[in-house]
């Protein structure tokens, strides 16, 4: 009664639900159902090859026990190794890389226009939107020991060349991910800074605050919630990204293998879906914690206006 009646005039309820039906169908089939089903699979030994392919059986917690078998857990190619690599990768590329760099660029060009801004923003955005495979090849060339641009630059700076793939594969994909994803933080912070009314800034200026004071007292408190939001989102995405696989394949000897690649290897190389599902459950649990954090950060932001 009451309020709904008015809206019915524009969109009758039945038509509205008819409009929503296809979206619900897709979301149900490809989000909700997999989310629930993956738990069930993780307690079975479903595989597409081998003896259990035809008759999958419930194996209880066996997949999880294997995953968290601490006697071998940190060995090369095991889950613990992948988890540790992921931790370094996420910390290095998202928390220490993308977010500070994005903020620095946004601040540098805050209230500035001109070709330099256009250039830096366009190049960063381009790095962000180009297809995975194309940038992966560009980076394979960029990091090449003998011919790569990066080593050429290092030699010209008198620093000598580095064998990125064999010596520092994790550092290599970390730098790659900073390059790939900084645009998001840059654009987010740039939009956040743009939404600060100029009068705030000017009031501080008139009051005689130095640049650092203006940043600390005016800008930082206003964009702090955005920093939190940004950190959680890029952590979530970096945690799940698969693109570095196209550059190092997780190698050499699993030294750059992240959890995302580990899942891929177990489920789609070995076709052991029961085990793969167990890893997927752990990944989704981590995702879920991050997403909940994101939601809470949004609620706090709303509370503070």
């Amino acid at each position: 009664m009451g309020k709904n009646k008015e809206i019915q005039q524009i969109l009758p309820r039945a038509t509205g639900f008819f409009f929503l039906a296809p979206a619900f169908f897709f979301i149900g089939l490809f989000l909700l159902f997999p989310f629930i089903w993956v738990f069930i699979i993780s307690f079975t030994n479903v595989a597409l090859t081998g003896p259990t392919a035809l008759n999958p059986a419930f194996v209880g917690l066996e997949n999880y026990v294997r995953l968290f078998d601490f006697s071998r857990w940190m060995r090369s190619g095991e889950f613990g190794n992948a988890l540790r690599n992921t931790l370094y990768f996420v910390l290095g590329s998202a928390v220490l890389g993308q977010a500070p760099l994005g903020l620095a660029i946004a601040l540098a060009f805050h209230r500035r226009r001109g070709p330099l801004r256009e250039l830096v923003f366009s190049l960063a955005t381009m790095a962000w939107i180009l297809p995975d495979v194309a940038v992966a090849f560009a980076w394979i060339a960029f990091l090449d020991y003998d011919f790569g641009t990066l080593n050429t630059v290092l030699i010209n700076l008198g620093l000598g060349k580095i064998d990125w793939y064999f010596q520092h594969p994790l550092v290599a994909i970390t730098i790659f991910n900073v390059w790939r994803g900084t645009a998001f933080s840059m654009l987010l912070f740039s939009a956040a800074l743009g939404s600060i009314p100029p009068s705030f800034w000017e009031t501080a200026e008139v009051a005689g605050a130095s640049s650092w004071q203006r940043f600390k007292d005016v800008i930082l408190p206003l964009i702090l919630p955005h920093i939190l939001t940004d950190l959680i989102l890029i952590t979530l995405w970096t945690f799940n990204t698969f693109t570095p696989y196209l550059i190092t394949g997780g190698g050499p000897f699993f030294r750059s293998e992240t959890v995302s690649m580990y899942t891929y290897r177990v489920a789609f190389k070995f076709l052991e879906f029961g085990r793969g599902a167990a890893v997927a459950v752990v990944m989704m649990a981590i995702n879920f914690v991050l997403a909940t954090g994101y939601l809470l950060s949004l609620r706090r932001r709303r509370a503070y206006g």
């Binding site: 089903w37 489920a267 789609f268 599902a277 997403a291």
Partner: peptide, 25 residues
């Protein structure tokens, strides 16, 4: 809508592909 977007970033990447592959199979 917020929950939906968030949920879609929980069920994502290689993790989501495990059940989705079997579903399509």
């Amino acid at each position: 809508v917020y929950l939906l977007v968030l949920f879609s970033s929980v069920v994502t990447g290689t993790a989501a592909m495990v059940p989705i592959f079997l579903l399509l199979y």
